[in-house]
Structure formats: C-alpha cells, structure tokens
Amino acid sequence: MIFTNKVSKIGIYTAIVLLALVFSAPFLYTLYTSFIPIKYVNTFTGLENWTFDNYKTFFTSDAYSVSKWLFNTVVMTGIILIGNLIINPMAAYALAKLDFFGKKLIFWIVVITMMIPYHMILIPVYVNMAKLGWLNSFAALTIPFLYQAIYIFMLRQFFIGVPNELIEAARMDGLTKMGAFWRIVYPLSKPVLITVAILTFAGTWNSYLIPSTLANTPEKYVLVVGLNSVKDMFFENTPLVMAGVVLTTLPILAFFFVFQKQYMEGISNSGLKG
C-alpha cells in the first residue's frame, strides 16, 4: 500500500528476511538443543548424533502425565480466553462509547490495575483462595483472570475509533445500545478481538508463577509447571528442558498462525465497509 515500486519491494524483502533470521535464531537453537544428548550442549554436532530421546522421555516415562497437564492447560486457557473475550470488550465499550456515572473512575481503575504486577498481591490472593477452599481447582486458576485490565484498556483505545454514526444507524434499525454493541460493533471488531485472543492465549498458556502457586499438586499441574518439575536427579538437563519448551510453544505458534490470517479479512471484508 505504502510502498509500490520494485526497488522498495526488494528493500522490503531484504529487511524482512534479515529480521526473520534474527527472530527465529533463538527458537531454532532451542529446537536444535532439544534434539541432542546432554554431552553436546554448547557445541554443534552433526545430524548423526541427534536423538528423539528427550521427547520420548516426556511421553514414555510413567512419571510424567503430559496428557493430563495438556488437558489442564487447555481447560484453563479456554475458560480464561472466553472470559476475556466477553468481559473485556463489554467494559471497554462502556468506557469508550457510553456516558454513565462513574465512568472516569472506572477508567482510572483499569489504568491503575494494569500497572500493578499480579504477583505483588499473590500472597493475599492465595490466602483468600485457601479460605474459600479453591486451591488446586480450575476455579482458582481461572476466575480471577477472566478479565485483564490491559486488554480493557487496549480495546477501549480501539472502540474510541468506531464512528458514532455506526451505532446511531444500528439504533435506527431498531437495535438498543446494548444490541448495537453485540450485533454490530462486536462482530466488526474481529481483528482487535483476535489480537486480544492471541495475546490472552499466549499469556495464559505460558504462565508459570500463578498456576504453580495456586495449583501445585501434580494432578492440577499445567503444562509449563509440569515441564518445569521435570529435572534430572541432581541438575537441570538442558536438552530435556528445551524439548519441553518446544512442546509448550508449538500450540501457541499453531494458534497464532491460524488466526493471524483473519487480519487479512478484517473490516474491509465485513460488508459494512462503505
């Protein structure tokens, strides 16, 4: 769009390929390390020494229940994802487009909440969970995290850009303000909702500190916590850890790869575009 001629096209490709090399290098190195025996760590070794043993350990050793960890992770991520795709846009829309008593205060609540890292209040949260008997349950892993102030803030910045005429037009067609949001604005915000989905997914899937604190029995380990408990007898086995990293990262990569295509559609394909 911005660049059109051939010279700039070559420039774009050069830049993008160089960046891609830098950005994929650490992951490729992780991938490499996950395939070698521990004695070759920190060196380069040929294909003949590569092995699947590190991966096999996860799936064959009866000490690790990777499938259970995966199940826990999927359930946790799924619930949080859905919560975030409903609660965040609602609050964000109210802050961006509706005029109601206390709106300014709620906006500042969102901003302030965003600023405080959650692990600073993790100890009181833990104690309150224990009082409710929630520890080591999906409730503990999900309910406090069904919203994210940061995404409310982000969505608000996007909804501000939605033209008021669009909402008024929807109301002319018989929708209420509530209906206008659910039926018009929400479906039209697909790109930004997908962004929120991707970011929430990645953040939840990878989280360690919170799940390892609030659910620390092996039955409720999520993938990252479980993989972290996989250590060798007396030391950390780097290739095994790296295999774990690859196993954890691949689902997010797949999720992203599938959903980033939606950007191409975006609003321009929604039919409402003038």
Binding site: M90, L98, F100, I109, L146, Y147
Partner: peptide, 13 residues
C-alpha cells in the same frame, strides 16, 4: 448499559 457492561469486570476486580 454502562454499568451492566462494567459490572462483570468490577465484581471480579
């Protein structure tokens, strides 16, 4: 609507 939309967030928060 403003309050209804903000409420789930406010309760959890």
């Amino acid at each position: 609507v403003g309050w209804v939309f903000s409420l789930p967030f406010l309760i959890l928060w």
